[in-house]
Every structure is written in structure tokens, then in C-alpha cells.
Design a protein around this nucleic acid. Structure first.
Length: 381
DNA sequence: ATGTCC
């Protein structure tokens, strides 16, 4: 086979629990990847969620419990996650055009001196560099201003319709990728947890988790400053990580662990997101849940789904909620268009039906900020 | 995913 991504297949396969209905949009290739990983040596249990889709190093939208550490099941973006903040700015006071212009400062990232001191305060300055701290990055990462549209559990948070929130999706940027690429070659067979390679990886992995969380907080602070308001954290959840659990190792790849029982479920730039509560009553879900709608179409195929003419590209900078998309990178604008993602309502329905989540609030995107840079993708007035 | 690949 010669594919370095997949480990050896063992004779026994771990139990796979699927938390999606027969109607869910799950590609056969994602199912195949789930089955292949379940047959890796030392795999104990696997959980697949309704946002499941194929990934480069294994399926995304899944959790894996194993007796060893598999860095490829965390992937390059170690510590990637979603943070949700409430803004003390009501929806009726948001001037979208002005906010779009002011959010352009996000392209610059955090001030290097602020980034360095934040890293030192977190106590990880010796393990990981500050470069890139406070920057969103590319791919599916974003900083989005959202409006609370409906609150189904008023007691769960202080959120009310008409409030604005900030949803930040980012990770450890080039630092996590550097850690992954610098691994000891034996990663392809998985690391024995008591070995030196595992210790080195875990120390860097844990630093990347802190870095990524700090990154999201700095992005939120920069955005709040640009909008002349304050941001207060509701929850911050990680969906690419490995964590010790009862003598085993729980890997999350595009599957979120809860923060005080709360998880943001990202929709897309043209669909609502949800704040959900996660009761953690289903052991086979491995303390994990979907982190978003999940990809429906891969990046390459999105280029064939959008005509590269000015009018169609300009249409991609507007959403159905009267909101805007700021993305000066034309390729990224197409690759991350709304249709690239599954229907978040279907994903949520499956999670509710399987007892993994309860909706707290529905949030609609008003400004999806990716990058102001390059061309004027977000500013085509 | 990536100061990424073309």
C-alpha cells in the first residue's frame, strides 16, 4: 500500500459508534477512513459525529480512544478550536460597513510585544514561539460577528435575541504545523505513551493548546477593540487534541470537548451557528461532540461550483442574513462558500436525537472576517 | 492546517 498516513491494520477492530442518521450527509470515503483508523493497533473505541468528512490524516468529526498516542489523529493544527464571546454592543448599534472597514486590523495580528508578553504570562515562552499569535490564518478559520436570533434555553446563559457575539475559529497556525512536521519518524506507528518521543510531543502539544487558546482570545480582543466594545467569554472549546483519559488517550479530530458543558456549533458564513449544551451522558460519544456543520464538498471541488465571474464572486461576499464576508483571497472565498458546508440544522438534529446536545441559542452571521488582504473581496461596493 | 503548492 505504501501510504504512510495509515498505520498497520490489526486483526481486531475497535467498536465504532456513529451519531448520525441514515439521512446524514456522510461520504463513503469518510466512513472508510473511520473503519481504517478503528483497525489501527491499540484502538479501543471510535465515535463518529454527523459532521464527519474525509481528512488528509484520517476522518474529521470523530474521536478516538487508544492505548497509544497518534499525532496524525490530532493533525497539524494542534489546539484548533472555537471560542464564543458576547459583545456588549447591541445588534441595532452595529454599522456593518463601518465595522467591516475597522476589522481590517485583524490582518495585522496582535502587536508583537503584546504577543510576547501574553506568551510569557502563559508560561510557555520557552516551548513555542510567539510568531503569528493573534492571527486568524487561512483555510476554514474565521472571526465572525453573529447576532443572537433565538434563545431556546434562557437559563443557560445571559444571551438574549438582539445580542451580538463573536465566534472565533483558529488554532496554533504555523507553530502547530511546525511541531507536527518536526516529529520523530516513529509517529507513523503511534507513540508508546511512556516513551521519550511521546513526552516530547505531549509537551509541545500542550504548549500549542495554550498558544491556540491565547490566539483566539487575542483575536477576540482585537475585534472587540475594532468595534469599540468589550468581549466576554462564553466558552472556548478545542477540537484537535489528545488528552489522557483513564489510562488511555483520547484523540479529538474536528470533535469538540465541552467547556463548562457548552460548545459552539459553527454553521457556515451563509447558515446559522448554534450554542449547544452537552450533557455528557453518552459514554460512547467519548466526551465529544461536533464542532460545526462539517464539510460537504472539498476545497478543490468548490472551484468547479462557482463561476469565476465578477458578479458571482461579488455575490459570495453577501449572505442571506444581510451580512458580509470579508475575504480578499479569491480562492478562499470560493473554497469556503456556504454550500461547502453541510446543513447545520441537520447536524444539530442528529446530535439532539442521539442525546448529545441541547440547543441554547441560534446565531446568524453578520460579518465573516477571513482576510481583508490581497484584492478587495470584502469591499466591492 | 501551513509566511503551503502552483
Amino acid at each position: 500500500m505504501g501510504n504512510p498516513i495509515w498505520g498497520e491494520q490489526s486483526a481486531v477492530r475497535a467498536c465504532i459508534s456513529r451519531f448520525y442518521s441514515s439521512q446524514a450527509w456522510v461520504e463513503g470515503r469518510a466512513e472508510d477512513q473511520l473503519a481504517q483508523v478503528a483497525a489501527w493497533p491499540g484502538m479501543v473505541a471510535v465515535a463518529g459525529f454527523p459532521d464527519l468528512h474525509p481528512g488528509r490524516f484520517g476522518p474529521v468529526g470523530a474521536a478516538f480512544l487508544a492505548d497509544r498516542i497518534w499525532p496524525q489523529l490530532v493533525g497539524p493544527d494542534i489546539g484548533c478550536g472555537m471560542g464564543l464571546w458576547r459583545l456588549n454592543l447591541p445588534r441595532h448599534r452595529l454599522k456593518i460597513d463601518k465595522a467591516v472597514r475597522r476589522l481590517a486590523v485583524l490582518d495585522d495580528g496582535a502587536d508583537p510585544a503584546d504577543a510576547a508578553s501574553a506568551l510569557a504570562d502563559a508560561g510557555i515562552e520557552g516551548l513555542i514561539a510567539a510568531d503569528g499569535l493573534g492571527s486568524i490564518g487561512g483555510g476554514n478559520h474565521f472571526c465572525e460577528v453573529q447576532a443572537v436570533e433565538e434563545v431556546s434555553s434562557p437559563d443557560a446563559t445571559s444571551l438574549r435575541p438582539g445580542d451580538l457575539c463573536l465566534l472565533v475559529h483558529s488554532g496554533s497556525r504555523g507553530r502547530g504545523a511546525q511541531i507536527f512536521e518536526g516529529l520523530d519518524d516513529s509517529w507513523k506507528q503511534g507513540y508508546a505513551p511512556d516513551g521519550a518521543a511521546a513526552s516530547r510531543y505531549l509537551a509541545l502539544h500542550d504548549a500549542a493548546l495554550v498558544w491556540a487558546r491565547l490566539n483566539r482570545a487575542l483575536i477576540a480582543a482585537l475585534a472587540a477593540e475594532a468595534l469599540s466594545c468589550e468581549a466576554s467569554l462564553i466558552c472556548d472549546t478545542v477540537h484537535n487534541q489528545v488528552v489522557a483519559q483513564d489510562g488511555l488517550w483520547l484523540h479529538r479530530k474536528g470533535a469538540a470537548g465541552a467547556d463548562r458543558g457548552l460548545v459552539p456549533l459553527a454553521g457556515s458564513r451563509d447558515a446559522p451557528s448554534y450554542l449547544i449544551s452537552v450533557p455528557d451522558l453518552v459514554p460512547k460519544a467519548l466526551g465529544s461532540v461536533s464542532h460545526g456543520a462539517g464539510r460537504r464538498y472539498d476545497r478543490a471541488s468548490m472551484h468547479g461550483r462557482v463561476r469565476k465571474v465578477k458578479s458571482e464572486l461579488a455575490a459570495l461576499t453577501r449572505n442571506r442574513f444581510g451580512g458580509r464576508v470579508v475575504c480578499g483571497d479569491r480562492d478562499l472565498l470560493m473554497e469556503e462558500a456556504g454550500p461547502a458546508y453541510k446543513n447545520p440544522e441537520s447536524v444539530l438534529r442528529d446530535l439532539v436525537d442521539f442525546g448529545l446536545a441541547q440547543p441554547i441559542a441560534r446565531l446568524v452571521p453578520l460579518i465573516t472576517f477571513k482576510t481583508a488582504g490581497k484584492a478587495a473581496g470584502g469591499d466591492t461596493e
